[in-house]
Amino acid sequence: MELMPAENSAVKGEKYLIFTILDSLYTMPSRFIGEIALFDAVYPLPLLPDYVLGIINRYSTPYALIDIGMLLQKKAAKRAKVLALKEHLDRAAILIDDVVDIVDVAPEELIRIEQEGSGDLTDVIESSFKWNGSDVFVLDIRQILARAVNELGN
């Protein structure tokens, strides 16, 4: 499923794709998302943190596969679908259970999440908003990638 970037974000805020991981609601701006596909296979590599599962094949191009469930909840996510990021961010993808909705979110609806300290898990969640009475957590994908690079380098 190809996702189009938000073209009219100035009017109603920004488009966010809401998805589930281990039954929790997460989201990120749809402009960061390249594609959603069914999980097929992952090729593990040695010496990676447990939330970097290895390499997946996206049209013959290697993408690193990240398990947000393992990163945030220390529990492996279901291997149901993969959400591939736009290539300009990085050739990386995350495991998700399923897509729930695409919504427009105005900046004033976003509730910033206070960082409790460097390296704390809250640093990969930048904000949240209410959707159908539930909290949806906005993943800071750049911070997740930076965190992986940091941990791999040590």
Partner: peptide
């Protein structure tokens, strides 16, 4: 193909110089 950015130029896996899928 080169390694994805988060895995490239990292000491621990920098010995992987490329990947090909066939």
């Amino acid at each position: 193909h080169t390694m994805p950015g988060i895995l490239a130029d990292i000491g621990r896996v920098s010995f992987i110089s490329g990947i090909r899928f066939t």
